[in-house]
Simulated scan of single mutants.
Amino acid sequence: MSPAIESDVKKRSRLSADHLTALAFLLPSFLLVLIFVYGFIGWTGYVSLSNWNSLVPDFSFAGLSNYLYLFQDFRFQADLRNTLVFTVLFIGFVIIAGVFLAILLDQKLKGESFFRNIFFFPMALSFVVTGVVWQWILNPSTGVNLLLQNFGVKPKWYTDTTILAGFQWGKIEFGIPIALFAVVIAAVWQMTGFSLAMYLAGLRGIPDEIREAARMDGATEFQIYRKIILPLLKPITVSVIIIMAHISLKIFDLIYAMTGPGANFVTDVPGVYMFETTFRGNYYANGAAIAIIMLITVAIFIVPYLISSRRGEA
């Protein structure tokens, strides 16, 4: 055997050994993900099509009856309305606040690191802690509201069941629940730091030569940001929208710790409904159906984004 052929054989055997070693390390994680993620998703889907709505398991086939029940249920209809309103307001305010704060911090001001750490700090907290703190701050009988009441202002915050710009359709009243604004404030306060970090990194990645060229052409600072900077930050905006939508569509802990379902379900969301239906009411099939619907809504945002990202990398 020639030296060249012998070297090629050794190289192939070495690569094969490396591949086997890599597979040996990846296999346990792959099996765990396969069982405890995709396996349980499949199990949840199977339960959602059954009649298991009591402590005694009943796996007889129920078809789509659990899903039909949910879409005819007043509470679930209110949950869908609240999720839509919360998602739109949450994403909108997070993007606006993130862009505004990133532009301010990008001005190379003194104490930038101090302010940056302050804005990033809420991200270190869990949604449960945030919910408890803001529940106290916005409680009509505690926090800043005691001071406001001295001036004749008596805000209800998350106890207000008024629906703004609402219209009736069947049993559900569509519109914007005022009580939901309190939850949006808490969520925006916590997640603005993430948006700020993304936009600040994007701004720092834009060469100064682009801005200088625009200034030499007579563009004002407002025109530079509106026609040059913000369009260049579009990929970051898409990423922020996807990530924030993923958080808002499956939100549970913040709302459960802060308000719960609320009066007339004005702050209720599918995550809270699923928890109470499954673990308090023992309606396992209905709870599984809610979980599958939540999974589908999240997948509607995440899957196209992942596909486009992979195509862009290719």
Score class of each variant (00 low, 15 high):
Pro140Val: 12
Val144Trp: 00
Ala219Cys: 13
Leu109Ser: 06
Thr44Gly: 13
Gly193Leu: 06
Pro270Lys: 06
Trp52Lys: 02
Ala289Asn: 09
Leu249Glu: 01
Tyr69Asn: 11
Phe74Lys: 08
Phe76Ile: 02
Ala291His: 06
Ile118Asp: 05
Ile300Thr: 13
Ile236Thr: 10
Phe181Tyr: 00
Pro270Cys: 11
Asp18Asn: 11
Asp73Leu: 11
Glu209Asn: 00
Met1Asn: 11
Ala186Tyr: 03
Tyr305Arg: 05
Leu148Ile: 10
Tyr273Ala: 09
Asn82Ile: 14
Pro28Ala: 06
Asn286Trp: 03
Leu31Pro: 01
Leu148Trp: 08
Ile241Tyr: 03
Ser54Leu: 03
Phe279Arg: 09
Trp169Tyr: 14
Ile35Met: 10
Pro304Asp: 05
Ala214Gly: 04
Ala4Gln: 14
Phe40Cys: 10
Val99Pro: 02
Leu64Lys: 00
Trp52Tyr: 04
Tyr67Val: 08
Ile5Gly: 05
Thr83His: 03
Trp169Asn: 12
Phe127Asn: 02
Gly98Lys: 07
Ala201Glu: 01
Ile118Phe: 09
Tyr67Gln: 06
Asn150His: 07
Phe86Thr: 05
Ser60Trp: 01
Gly175Ile: 15
Val133Cys: 03
Val129Asn: 04
Ala289Lys: 09
Val153Trp: 00
Phe90Ser: 15
Gly111Glu: 14
Thr259Leu: 06
Ser239Arg: 06
Glu276Tyr: 07
Leu233Lys: 05
Leu233Ser: 04
Ile300Cys: 12
Gly63Asp: 05
Glu221Asp: 12
Ala214Ser: 11
Ser195His: 02
Pro235Cys: 07
Ala214Cys: 09
Leu146Tyr: 01
Pro231Lys: 11
Ala285Arg: 04
Ala78Leu: 15
Pro270Gln: 09
Glu221Gly: 01
Pro207Tyr: 03
Tyr199Gln: 05
Ala245Pro: 13
Trp43Tyr: 15
Met123Ile: 15
Gln72Tyr: 06
Ile293Pro: 03
Pro270Leu: 10
Ile41Ala: 04
Ala17Ile: 06
Glu221Arg: 10
Phe114Val: 15
Ile210Leu: 13
Lys250His: 12
Lys250Glu: 14
Lys171Leu: 13
Leu31Gly: 01
Thr267Asn: 15
Val238Met: 04
Asp217Gln: 06
Gly262Asn: 08
Ala179Asn: 03
Asp58Val: 03
Gly170Leu: 13
Phe76Gly: 02
Phe40Gly: 04
Thr159Ser: 09
Lys250Leu: 13
Leu70Arg: 01
Leu23Ile: 15
Val266His: 00
Ile296His: 06
Gly193Phe: 06
Ala22Met: 12
Phe76Lys: 02
Asn117Gly: 15
Asn53Tyr: 11
Leu138Lys: 01
Tyr256Cys: 01
Leu109Gln: 10
Thr130Arg: 01
Ile229Gln: 04
Thr162Val: 07
Tyr273Ile: 01
Ile41Arg: 00
Ser13Trp: 10
Thr159His: 10
Ala187Met: 04
Asn282Ile: 12
Ala214Thr: 07
Asn139His: 12
Val56Asn: 07
Ala257Asn: 09
Leu80Glu: 05
Val144Asn: 00
Pro304Cys: 09
Gly205Met: 08
Asp160His: 04
Ala289Phe: 09
Ala24Asp: 11
Val183Met: 05
Arg14Ser: 14
Ala17Thr: 05
